[in-house]
Nucleic acid binder design. Sequence first.
DNA 1: GAGGGGAGCGCG
DNA 2: AAAGCGCGCTCCCCTC
Length: 331
Amino acid sequence: MIKKTPKGQPSTAEEVLQELANDYELPRLVLEFRSLSKLKSTYTDKLPLQIDKDTGRVHTSYHQAVAATGRLSSTSPNLQNIPIRTEEGRRIRQAFIAPQGSVLLAADYSQIELRIMAHLSQDEGLVGAFQRGEDVHRATAAEVFGLALDDVGTEERRAAKAINFGLIYGMSAFGLAKQLNIGRNEAQDYVNAYFEKYPGVLEFMDRIRKQAAEDGYVETIFGRRLYLPEINARNGMRRQAAERTAINAPMQGTAADIIKRAMISVHEWIESKQPPVKMIMQVHDELVFEVGEKAVDEMSQTINQLMCDAAELSLPLVVDTGTGKNWDEAH
DNA sequence: GAGGGGAGCGCG
DNA sequence: AAAGCGCGCTCCCCTC
């Protein structure tokens, strides 16, 4: 069966080519060419042209009123999609370096959207796993597959991670099956097992859908709204899309609220105490700083604390910090 | 030559 | 890819 684009053309999307690559040589070469040309045309060729003549740096523009959920967006250049997932891509990230005497410090919230889901749902099992400081994907795998924490294998953890991410996006069993390359029934079994173990999450999903249908909008913990005009659409696909947004927006949006609060409190600290710190980038759940190398440990501790204190949920916020001469090393 | 839309793909 | 949320950029094709 040849997969089609919405306009009816045969699709050559990555996922399709990946599948075809099992049987043929050509799709593999096409994919390799595409990934390399993406890196070259978007980053390697372009970023050097965007260096400011006066400062010798690239300066992005952040936009506050673009993303529906309250995230920032970044343009000219977009510094929120610098490669990290492949070895080749990371070489681009390595080009982002600190000036002499400074290092880069990257501080990112750990599992912030899942923590927000735990808080919003008040699900006992999920809140407990975070309070105990467990590896949440491992904990989910243990529950869903009925194993002890120590008996969870890499494959079970991988599946649990896909389930956890899928939930944040309002994914169905169909989507999970596709993601994990398993049958629909098996995927449905996983979803059922999940909701049996985390009933609070199921109640949260039902509640938010119902609330959105009644009010026509959803809110973050801090009260920023997203209106959903299609939440009661007669067209089932449109309505379901709005329902997925209703589920996702409070989590993605609350995470955006929290990091903005953190940025304000870090800014106030910098203004008042004049530490050897510059806040230079935001990437959704991560802040990047230039820090005087002699003060790294102390500055890293303070920043970590300020970010953790940006919101008080039913469970702790955790921030991972790393440092290095370049942005890749800092991770 | 400018502008728009689709396809594809980089990130969280 | 209809079926998983939110973005921006490049390339290509098309229209005006």
